[in-house]
Design a protein around this nucleic acid. Structure first.
Lengths: 177, 177
DNA sequence: TGCGCAAGCGGAGAGGTCTCCGTTAACTTC
DNA sequence: GAAGTTAACGGAGACCTCTCCGCTTGCGCA
């Protein structure tokens, strides 16, 4: 049984956080708590850390992005679909403040699963499509790819495409091995 | 003209930081300042932030690592030399606390140049050797490679080699451009 | 309708990075 | 040597993330 005030507080926190992040881009947890009219303690009971909150804020966008995979795979070759999708992912990571760090954080607790899961699933589908038609090496691992994606997001924007090309070439099965 | 107490303080800070990091592994800036017998203000005048200090602590190791390139290139093929050297780099990043983050931080101010430079030079040599004998694509950029290296260090240790293989395959010139 | 009791609250505070600025003391000049 | 200049000092404190715990209050039950 969830107490009504608890449910309401959680909603208020999420709303406040959404506002704060879209307005300021960067906001402290304390400010969010204040804006939501709760104490820091309450904020942290709902979200064990900054990343968890950020992930929840952008959950919808993450899901939406993951959902585009099917359409992409219908219209493009697997490799090109992967390229386009990754560009979108990196774009989201850059625009949504802190999302990049949250997604590529190494500590993937069970809480992160909600956000991490769809992304991994999306990548898995993309890679599988490529493996099927032999354009992507069979030993390619989704989690490894996501890891590499972090480098993309951290790099200067004008280096994104060159580096992605490099990564995709490494994934291609026409490499020896 | 550098005041004598200033010179001495800088030395004491570096010594204290080295001790603190090899002992505890993780230490706060305040603790280091205290250990060195100076105020936080003095610490931060010498090192504008945490990364700068860490970089200075491990400068010698960085230089040493950069110096191994020549020998490696004499004994190995360029691609294998690059592989071995990168493994060493990642190992250092993992062992020296915070070095990974400091090296792959995007904000490369002039202070970072002292540490960043040798690493880039080393990578440049390795890549150039490969370009020379046509095993590495001619458009490979040292800075891009260093960026990708960050993903290596952040990944789980047992994923290091697989991911590195991927990266190196991407760099190889037998990929279609 | 009233009571008991977790579940939930929120703020004080620990410990962090880094800054600002009034004070101190190392060098220069006479 | 004494005095003046100014670079360097260092600590108070702003602001951060996150925790701990005494107090409050919503809810099930009589």
């Amino acid at each position: 049984m969830v107490r009504s005030d608890a449910r309401e507080n959680r909603a208020r926190i999420l709303a406040a956080a959404r506002e704060a992040f879209t307005e300021d881009g960067d906001t402290s947890m304390n400010q969010i708590a204040q804006r939501a009219g709760v104490g820091p303690g309450t904020l942290y009971r709902n979200y064990p850390n900054r990343e968890a909150l950020i992930l929840d804020i952008y959950q919808e966008e993450i899901d939406k992005l993951a959902d585009t995979v099917t359409a992409l795979l219908e219209a493009q070759t697997p490799l090109e679909a992967l390229r386009l999708w990754t560009l979108d992912l990196v774009d989201a990571m850059r625009k949504k403040h802190g999302l990049g760090g949250a997604l590529s954080a190494t500590a993937h607790a069970s809480i992160t699963e909600r956000s991490y899961g769809p992304v991994i699933t999306a990548i898995t589908h993309l890679l599988d499509a490529g493996k099927q038609n032999n354009t992507i090496r069979p030993d390619a691992e989704p989690a490894d790819f996501l890891q590499l994606t972090g480098a993309l997001w951290r790099a200067a924007p004008d280096r994104t495409e060159p580096i992605l090309t490099l990564i995709l070439d490494g994934l291609s099965s026409h490499s020896t091995r």
